[in-house]
Design a binder for these strands. Structure first.
Lengths: 180, 180
DNA sequence: CACTATTAGTATCGAGTCGAAACTATTGCA
DNA sequence: TGCAATAGTTTCGACTCGATACTAATAGTG
């Protein structure tokens, strides 16, 4: 059906234009995407494996890209004390600044009215969930939308990992997130 | 605004998943995108420049990719007689077959009902037009939606190039297309 | 009609993406 | 304790991609 191809093309073209604009400075589109993910992911979701799952690439590739991001001073590596296999990445100050520059796609997005934005988000989200379900991929939704998220007296809390959360963590991406 | 980032992420993730699935056989995602474009573009729109404009990459890159597509037997090169600088690419039989395999994104798309599809297409199209307008990029719409397209007694006709069109050309992509 | 500017396309370079496959180190489990 | 699973890394080869410098053909101007 020609109709289908069309929407697919639109999505790919939009992403491509977003990418093309993403060559700003010494970052390429993939590096920018990683930076963006690390910026929005919580402390449980910042390992090479998580980045790989989110971007849909292999861990080998991710290792390479994270290495070049580290060499350019955008991220710091940190090994876990609990599980010595695990590595986690933090954005440096430079990294946070770079993650903050807006893309042309965002400007165009803010031109849409609120209800259109809502509709668009909903439709895209449904598609994404559908595809992820078929590929047993994870959703990487926001912590606060998860079935394990609780609001307690002393603040937010994760019932899956059994840990107290800081005030901003519910708004971050979690690799364990499962929609309620 | 977190809201904006979200939609942008959705679009990029969908495109990325589409890409990741696009490694089938001996084609990579970019090669697959080029093949798809060449398959849907009319005879006036199949040069390296047009591919570059459509994909938002430089001509140098496009030349390289077309070269590898040709070596693998997916496309044929043809120099124009009128303007000897111009080259045009045709899909081979193998190329047409490869362009026909559907992506997971398409299946997920057909799960949406017709009105949702229409709504989604419209919203994405508006965004695309908006972004293209800001970057003086071309729309690459279908011939039949163009202001130069005419329906004559002897069949479809292009008033811009002053040529008669075959029956299927109005349904193809044209680099000269300008929405009516 | 000659001269210059523009346009179409190509080659080369360096950095980096990407999957595949082979590998190390750690942890989990029976 | 010993083997399987997991997290991450390395290496390889093919390729993308922008930048830059290039050739050839056409267009436009005086």
């Amino acid at each position: 059906m020609t109709t289908d191809t069309h929407i697919r093309d639109l999505i790919n073209r939009l992403a491509r234009l977003d990418s093309a604009a993403g060559w700003e400075g010494d970052l390429n589109p993939t590096q920018r995407a990683m930076l963006g993910y690390l910026d929005r992911a919580n402390r449980f979701s910042r390992s090479p494996s998580h980045v790989s799952d989110y971007l849909g690439i292999t861990r080998g590739t991710t290792t390479q890209s994270l290495k070049s991001l580290r060499q350019k001073g955008y991220v710091n590596e940190r090994r876990s004390d609990i599980d010595k296999r695990v590595v986690s990445y933090d954005l440096t100050q430079t990294g946070r600044e770079a993650a903050a520059i807006p893309a042309p796609l965002e400007e165009s997005l803010s031109a849409l009215n609120a209800s259109d934005q809502q509709a668009l988000r909903q439709l895209l989200q449904n598609m994404l969930q559908d595809i992820l379900a078929k590929n047993d991929g994870r959703e990487f939704g926001l912590c606060k939308t998860c079935r394990h998220h609780r609001e307690r007296d002393r603040g937010p809390y994760c019932a899956l990992l059994d840990v107290a959360l800081t005030r901003d963590e519910p708004h971050q991406i979690c690799h364990e997130q499962v929609s309620a």
